[in-house]
């Protein structure tokens, strides 16, 4: 089990108080809250603390891909295979699973928003980790790709005991896939926030 404790001093400027976030392996957790409450900021905090956390982590950011030049996913996979072979999952399986094969050689800048999102998801899931932190992974995805991602989350949690921490506003996702929801809420009358399950 992984315990992540927010330190009061770090979060004072964001108004977060001490709290405990308990995450078990093989589960999908959702982080839910109003816009601007600090969900992505929390992921940024986790990233800075990732070296102190014993679990391997992989992050999916919200920001759109805007690479320089005519780089395709194929070129990035080539670099990752050369330099990060030990940290790679079965990326060919991921490409087939998400039907990205035909887009592999196309420059990222020529892809649609949804296709770019898929490329980001593949690159995030391609890293060997125990905890995947996905910030709004379903943005721009069509229905078919959404259901593929649900399917992947369920398979990965059941067969590989991987855990997922997902920021999303999708009710269907919350009800169908998620094991537990963390609500980010503003405490009445103050700047502080707390997490409740």
């Amino acid at each position: 089990m992984l315990n992540i404790k927010n330190e009061k001093t770090i979060f004072m400027q964001h108004g977060l108080l001490d709290c405990l976030l308990e995450i078990d392996s093989g589960k999908v957790y959702a982080i839910w809250g109003a816009n601007g409450i600090g969900k992505s900021t929390f992921f940024s905090y986790l990233k800075t603390r990732s070296k102190d956390i014993s679990w391997g982590m992989s992050f999916l950011e919200q920001a759109e891909l805007r690479p320089l030049g005519a780089v395709s996913l194929h070129h990035i996979i080539k670099v990752l295979r050369k330099k990060h072979e030990e940290e790679l999952e079965d990326i060919d399986y991921l490409i087939d699973f998400f039907n990205f094969g035909s887009l592999l050689q196309r420059p990222i800048n020529f892809l649609s928003g949804g296709q770019k999102q898929l490329a980001k998801i593949i690159l995030c899931l391609a890293k060997k980790a125990q905890l995947y932190c996905l910030d709004e992974p379903f943005n721009n995805l069509d229905e078919e790709k959404e259901s593929r991602l649900y399917q992947y989350l369920q398979e990965a949690r059941q067969h590989q005991q991987k855990s997922f921490l997902v920021i999303d506003h999708n009710r269907y996702f919350l009800e169908s896939v998620v094991d537990q929801v963390f609500y980010f809420r503003k405490k009445d009358g103050s700047d502080s926030y707390f997490l409740g399950a």
């Binding site: 990035i76 670099v79 990752l80 050369k82 990060h84 940290e87 690159l123 890293k127």
Partner: peptide
């Protein structure tokens, strides 16, 4: 060059991969 390739693709991706 390999790190620059990842950085020029996405700084978030590069950081994710160490």
């Amino acid at each position: 060059a390999p790190r620059l390739q990842l950085m020029s693709f996405s700084s978030h991706l590069a950081e994710n991969w160490g």
